[in-house]
Design a protein around this nucleic acid. Structure first.
Length: 394
DNA sequence: AAATCGGGGCA
DNA sequence: TGCCCAGATTT
């Protein structure tokens, strides 16, 4: 066993690596005092139920507090506890997640619930390492659950903490670089107190959300202003360092609304990958950037040929949608059929009314208003012509 | 280490 | 428009 070496002077943090926090205990005390005066009252703070804490943490991954609240309420209404979630079908879970984004979260949530019921008698583990064994729970979320649900110290490094620490330390490194990551986790652990872990976790995140905001940090009201090297150096507006993101490519797609007396055809996407498990109209996309006008007709013809539909398709309009790593331009068409078409058996035929409550993904949901605005059959679909059991083929 | 994975809010 | 959000997983 080698003797534990001390950090040589050459590895001591230089200016780019950030400054040290010399009084972490005092810093935490002042932060906690501020939190008890100014902390937010949020739905998931009115419980210590690990199930509810867990659900909130997963929903809040890369998703704002505002967007989460309604989903959180609806989800708990339907699945009030772990057993209810584990007993549900993935389809039902996805339906409650539709519109929230990052659908692997819903799949992992359901899988983790089943795993806990099957292997842990439905009890959440308290240790970070065991929490991280569950799908969808990484290092930061594990720390958050341990802190908030169990009031035991669990370090967190989410977007809020990352920003707060970059400024406190005056860390002049790309915040996602390995060097920065090491520093940030080091201080995240160092600052997490043994006592008051629950309050500290909420406090550091509230500080990031209310005071140490992405833009216009409110240093005048910051309880940690006296500890902040970023502010001392006048760098609080510049930190954390921003990295230029490459321009996202444009993707072209054509969707076809096939209308029969039974309704409009939709299909489910594969469970893995983009928008996994959500539903959509039959569509075809160009893999790469291309000339929009020329590609539109080509894609439509290709799609109709694949489906064996030779009737004339009418344009419904176009939709734009932005994803994290590409933009989508979507051309919507409709085809009116008198009878049924010979299409895959796992497709379903839904009325416009049913579609509005169906887990369509975002870009295709944007087509529905175009349909309402267009003249023709869809909205005047005769009720008596409808299949009494639209979920199954008639 | 880099790419993948959504959608909404904001200046 | 570009950036941000209570990040994790896959390659």
């Amino acid at each position: 066993m080698l003797p534990r070496r001390q950090t040589p002077a050459s590895e001591a943090p230089g200016p780019a690596q950030g400054c040290c926090l010399t009084e972490p205990a005092a810093l935490v005390t002042e932060l906690l005092a501020w939190y008890r005066r100014c902390g937010r009252d949020l739905p998931w703070r009115r419980t210590r139920d690990p199930y509810r804490i867990w659900l909130s943490e997963i929903m809040l991954q890369q998703t704002g507090v505002q967007a989460v609240q309604d989903y959180y309420r609806r989800f708990l209404e339907r699945f009030p506890n772990l057993a209810a979630l584990a007993a549900a079908s993935l389809d039902e879970v996805l339906a409650l997640w539709a519109g929230l984004g990052y659908y692997s979260r819903a799949r992992n949530l359901h899988a983790a619930a089943c795993q806990l019921v099957a292997e842990q008698q439905g009890c959440f583990p308290m240790e970070v390492e065991q929490l991280m064994q569950l799908p969808g729970i990484g290092r930061s979320t594990a720390g958050a659950i341990r802190s908030i649900a169990f009031d035991r110290p669990g370090p967190i490094l989410d977007g809020n903490v990352r920003r707060v620490l970059c400024r406190l330390l005056a860390l002049q490194l790309p915040p996602r670089s390995p060097a920065a990551e090491r520093q940030l986790w080091h201080w995240a652990e160092r600052l997490t107190p043994t006592a008051a872990a629950h309050d500290y976790a909420q406090a550091i995140m509230d500080l990031g959300a209310l005071i140490c905001r992405p833009r216009q940090p409110d240093c005048d009201r910051c309880p940690l202003a006296g500890h902040c090297h970023g502010r001392r150096l006048g760098l609080q507006q510049q930190l954390p360092l921003r990295s230029r993101r490459p321009a996202v490519p444009l993707r072209l797609e054509v969707a076809l609304l096939i209308e029969t007396p039974h309704g409009i055809a939709v299909r489910q996407r594969p469970l893995r990958g983009l928008l996994g498990g959500l539903w959509e109209f039959p569509c075809l996309q160009l893999a790469q950037e291309a000339d929009a006008a020329a590609a539109e007709i080509g894609l439509l013809q290709q799609l109709q040929q694949q489906l064996g539909l030779r009737d004339l398709a009418q344009p419904l309009g176009q939709v734009r949608h932005v994803y994290s790593h590409f933009r989508l331009q979507l051309y919507a068409y409709r085809i009116l059929l008198g009878g049924t078409a010979d299409l895959p058996a796992d497709w379903r035929w839904l009325t416009p009314e049913q579609l509005s409550a169906w887990p369509l993904h975002g870009s295709h949901a944007k087509i529905l208003p175009l349909l309402s605005a267009a003249p023709g059959r869809a909205l005047s679909l005769a009720k008596e012509a409808l299949c009494p059991c639209p979920m199954s083929p008639c």
